[in-house]
Computed example of a mutant assay.
Amino acid sequence: MAAVRLDQLRKVYPNGNVGVAGASFDIADGELLVLVGPSGCGKTTLLRMIAGLESISSGQLSIDGRVVNEVAPKDRDIAMVFQNYALYPHMTVAENLGFGLKLRGHKQPDIDRRVLAAAKTLELEARLGSRPAGLSGGQRQRVALGRALVRNPRVFLLDEPLSNLDAKLRLSMRVEIARLHRQLKATMIYVTHDQIEAMTLGQRIVVLDGGVIQQIDTPMNLYQRPANLFVAGFVGSPAMNLLRGTLRHRDGWVLDTAQGDVALGASAPAADWSAWCDREVVLGIRPEDLQPLDGGTAAFHAQLEVLEPVGNEIFLNLRFGIQTLVSRVPPQVLPEPGSRVALGLVAARLHLFDPADGARVGA
């Protein structure tokens, strides 16, 4: 396997559109790193630049210390798994798995050995004689993974490989890919727009928006300490609640909003907020840190509009003036929709953002 280094990698198209704006980060040997962001953020463009399928406008790309900017894709010793399985329908599973090796001139005994090893790893031994039409979606995806696996490449590149699967299959294939990564100790770069995939698979995650890297961190650090408003709103389901207002200090911190005051507690939870007193800010509250109260002093009151029970938890859709909010609670007896609900905050886990540039205060 190999380490990968990106140094100010940039992609500018002939029309002047910037696809990737100066990406710089290292991927450790054996790491599973995820590129995540909304459609058009540049994640697939960046992956294709690493693969050699997109030219690099400027910057330097190294694989295992070797600069590969001008190296052809076939000579980079990488293997790519696409969103489309791209299996040959007239070939058996074994033939699909071994076809790339055959094109590269490998002898048949070597091809057979590698195909059988990949089939065992992916539990496809019983389907080696089948054709793609006779396989389930999950089996086809495993064949696509196996076709990369037999190559024994230095780097695996996966471009939204699970997006064509239903929810249940996506879950099982996420587990499959995580198991495969642990077993192979392979360097993998995985692209997805699905933050759940990113959070559950990635050892580290690169969040992109508009071709610009917003934050690179572990899944839990992204969730607990988002660098800016974009990451705060993108990572987490339901998304973080965001309230804009003026920060005041009146026997404790208060957010003065157009909908009314929100009491934040006596002390700043994570950073010194004194520099932001009497200034406009954006307050971030994760849904699990916004809880209905049965007694005690409420931070504020809101109207309960809709309850969404999803089994092990319930989402409370609330309205605070014109602002919609979501609270996540365990199963319990709750007020009826239309009721006015007292709400408390977990003060130690509040987030404060600069509304001008979106940066988190104390980041």
Results as ranks from 00 to 15, higher is better:
F234S: 10
A342T: 05
A86C: 12
A266W: 00
V346M: 12
A133F: 00
L307K: 15
D357L: 05
A299R: 02
V341K: 00
G129M: 13
L242W: 03
N15C: 02
R204C: 03
L158Q: 08
R76G: 14
P331S: 08
L222K: 01
D278R: 08
Q224V: 14
P89I: 11
A359Y: 02
R48G: 07
A239Q: 09
D77N: 14
T246H: 07
I314P: 00
A2W: 03
K168L: 13
S57I: 07
P153M: 04
R340T: 07
L318D: 13
Q214P: 06
L35C: 11
V34F: 14
H249M: 13
R170K: 07
V71Q: 12
Q203P: 03
H351C: 14
G344W: 05
A178D: 08
R182I: 09
G284R: 06
P219C: 08
G22N: 15
V207D: 01
G100F: 06
R244T: 15
E95N: 06
A302Q: 04
L47N: 07
S62M: 14
L149S: 07
Q291M: 05
T200W: 12
R360E: 11
E308Y: 02
A298Y: 03
K168M: 08
V207I: 11
F320N: 10
A356V: 15
Q139A: 04
N17D: 13
A268H: 01
D354I: 12
F99Q: 10
I63W: 04
R174Y: 10
E31H: 12
R225Y: 12
V4G: 09
P14W: 08
E160V: 08
A302R: 05
S130E: 14
R66V: 15
S339Y: 11
A356P: 00
M91K: 14
H193T: 07
I189G: 01
P73M: 06
A268Q: 02
G65Y: 15
P309D: 12
P309E: 13
L162N: 06
V81S: 05
A117R: 11
A126M: 02
W276A: 12
A227I: 10
H181F: 08
A359P: 02
L122P: 04
A298R: 05
L158A: 03
L169A: 07
S130Y: 14
G358Y: 03
A198G: 10
E54A: 12
R154Q: 15
P73K: 04
V281Y: 02
T45V: 12
S24R: 09
Q291L: 11
L32S: 00
D26L: 02
V310A: 15
G265D: 05
N96P: 01
V175R: 09
D112V: 08
F230G: 09
Q224C: 05
L180G: 01
Y223W: 04
M80I: 15
L222I: 09
D278P: 03
H181C: 06
I177Y: 06
L222M: 06
I56D: 05
H249N: 11
V81K: 06
P335H: 00
L149F: 10
G37Y: 10
